[in-house]
Design a protein around this nucleic acid. Structure first.
Lengths: 168, 168
DNA sequence: CCTAAAGTTTACGCCGACGTCAGGTTCGAT
DNA sequence: ATCGAACCTGACGTCGGCGTAAACTTTAGG
């Protein structure tokens, strides 16, 4: 029982797909595009996804679904961050200037993403306000219909004189 | 000069498209799908979009871009609301029961949309938090690089001993 | 009235993001 | 060792949401 015994629990492609709610095909496709390569493989060559891989997959999906990027754009975003994350392995290759450039690029991407998120948040807030206003109108109309209904002979279907105007 | 003189200012298809930032093809496509029919036409049959039409177009786009619905789903959403908005013209056709059903449907759609918006808002908030955390890490790294830089002989490019780990 | 610009219909084209099928290989529980 | 389930690598299919081209008509300013 040495401490290296606990292999990092890795998932098979089907399990990974299920967990995130995508298909196996999607995972293979992302790999084909260079977005997500499983960091492990079985002896026979089957993909094994680590927790970090799953995180990355979730990230990809959020960029896709929440922010509406296509997979090419997501690739560029991830690349910028990967490069920076590899700053230590790139240690011998990149000089001070190169590392600064990489950092600046990552910061730039980060700025843009945050700006985009803020924009989306604002638009969503507006939409929410409109939806709530509409819900309020619905409640008013419902109340009017109720009062009309009570006033009428219960049991008989009848026309009410002039229902309130309902816009949208 | 009677008061009927001011024709409701309507836009030609190109103007409408420009204003909302889509193509003419898109407008015709939406019409083909039954999502958006211009409420006016010229004598020769050219489409004329009123302000209300533009509002509807914007609505369609928001449902598409912000909430991620496809055009089929958007059609159902709009239909539910249209029906209710027509509650007065449907006056003779629909009985009390029918009107209540229409209202309930609209309320149901509204509930789901609001729920969806809330979910998106939460996910965006999470994403924003992560982005800000990442930005903070970047600032730390930048500061460390700065101090390394100052400590070194200015003008010579050199390797620094161990740059701080940068995750993500 | 003339004419360029904008609009109309019809129809084929395109591309991203997978779905799906075929034919062979690997995994892991028994 | 076995055997069904899961995985592998191609490769082709699909579908939504338009783009684009062609051939013709309408619009509106001079």
């Amino acid at each position: 029982m040495n401490e290296e015994d606990q292999a990092p629990p890795s998932l098979r492609i089907g399990e990974a797909a299920d967990q995130v709610g995508v298909s196996c095909r999607t995972l293979r496709y992302y790999e084909e595009l260079g977005l997500l390569a499983p960091s492990q493989h079985s002896a026979g060559g089957a993909r094994r996804y680590t927790e970090g891989d799953i995180d990355r997959l979730v990230r990809i999906r959020e960029l896709q679904e929440l922010l509406g990027f296509d997979l090419g754009e997501i690739g560029e975003i991830l690349q910028g961050e990967d490069q920076l994350a590899d700053i230590r392995s790139q240690y011998h290759a990149a000089g001070m200037t190169g590392r600064r450039a990489m950092l600046e690029r990552a910061v730039d991407i980060n700025d843009r993403l945050r700006s985009l998120v803020r924009t989306k948040q604002e638009r969503l807030a507006e939409m929410m306000a409109e939806l709530e206003a509409k819900a309020q109108r619905y409640r008013t109309v419902a109340a009017e219909m109720e009062s009309q209904f009570r006033r009428s002979d219960p049991g008989t279907e009848q026309e009410c004189p002039q229902p309130a105007p309902v816009s949208g």
